[in-house]
Design a protein around this nucleic acid. Structure first.
Length: 278
DNA sequence: GTCGATGTTATCAA
DNA sequence: TTTGATAACATCGA
């Protein structure tokens, strides 16, 4: 569920809530969620203070004092919730950070794909989950963006979602960006015109920016740190809108499969250039 | 009850 | 090099 905008909103929410607070203890209810040794959390975290929270791609990086960081990947259904300790224990709550103030930061994850890991702040760049990430889509310059995408001949949509190419795009924002740029998701990246790739660079920035401004998208069950739902799903132009009219040309949006993922397009506005037939 | 789909990603085979 | 299938898991809707 959470792509770059949702993760960014969680990070901002966490910043508001946890910076400067001290961890009293950590309880792990589902050890599989913690990479490395789950005991590490209980052992190394008590007494530490949250110093900063940031994002790299879809990964949340929480810095503590004493040179340790907590990495959190929400994958499909992870949530980090800021709650009163007496708040009812919701189903799928797997890890609880008990803060000295009495408050809870709870990790909840219905499908249990997400994970939490302790890491040394000094060596974050060597963490494989971080070292392999491509540039931030909201920071990369146009020329570098075009060069990077055009150097592969894969289908443009799976390429956009490849975290080593760009870090942060997932299924929703790939569909929305390709629609805005009027590019068919099956187009071979190496054969897309400079004009279209320039358009895609702008589209990615605008789509992600607006989604962040809207507190993300809640399609199934995304929640911000304070349990708030996103609003960008009300602005989808193609995602999950099959059968409804294209906002540009009124022809019905169709749903196809690309790289194994459900993909929403307007077949008129996003045309596939004829493949060379060798 | 069954089947297929769901926003992610790692891994394997072709 | 690129692709598709599969797996991890729970839930929902047809």
């Amino acid at each position: 569920m959470p792509e770059l905008p949702e993760v960014e909103c969680v990070v901002r929410g966490l910043r508001r809530r946890i910076i400067g607070r001290t961890i009293e203890r950590v309880t792990v209810h589902l050890p599989r969620i913690v990479r490395g040794s789950p005991l590490d959390l209980a052992e190394h975290l008590p007494g530490r203070i949250f110093r900063d929270v940031r994002r790299r791609g879809k990964l949340i990086i929480i810095g503590l004092d004493g040179g340790l960081s907590v990495l959190v990947h929400l994958r499909m259904t992870g949530q980090l919730l800021w709650l009163e300790p007496q708040a009812p224990l919701e189903k799928h709550t797997h890890v609880i950070f008990h803060l000295r103030s009495g408050r809870h930061l709870r990790y909840r994850d219905q499908r249990q794909f997400g994970w939490i890991q302790l890491a040394e702040s000094e060596h974050l760049d060597q963490q494989p989950q971080i070292a392999g990430l491509g540039p931030e889509p909201l920071e990369i310059e146009r020329e570098a963006f075009v060069r990077r995408l055009r150097s592969h001949r894969r289908q443009i949509k799976p390429l956009l979602m490849d975290q080593t190419i760009l870090a942060g795009l997932g299924n929703i924002y790939a569909d929305e960006s390709l629609f805005q740029a009027r590019i068919h998701p099956l187009s071979r990246a190496s054969r897309i015109s400079t004009v279209k790739l320039n358009r895609l660079h702008i589209a990615v920035g605008e789509v992600l920016g607006k989604a962040i401004d809207c507190s993300g998208s809640t399609v199934r069950q995304f929640r911000g740190t304070d349990g708030e739902i996103g609003e960008f799903q009300n602005h989808f132009r193609v995602y999950d809108r099959q059968g409804q009219p294209c906002p540009r040309c009124r022809r019905p949006i169709i749903k196809i499969r690309v790289g194994g993922r459900g993909t929403h397009i307007c077949a008129r506005c996003q045309q596939l250039p004829r493949e060379k037939t060798r």
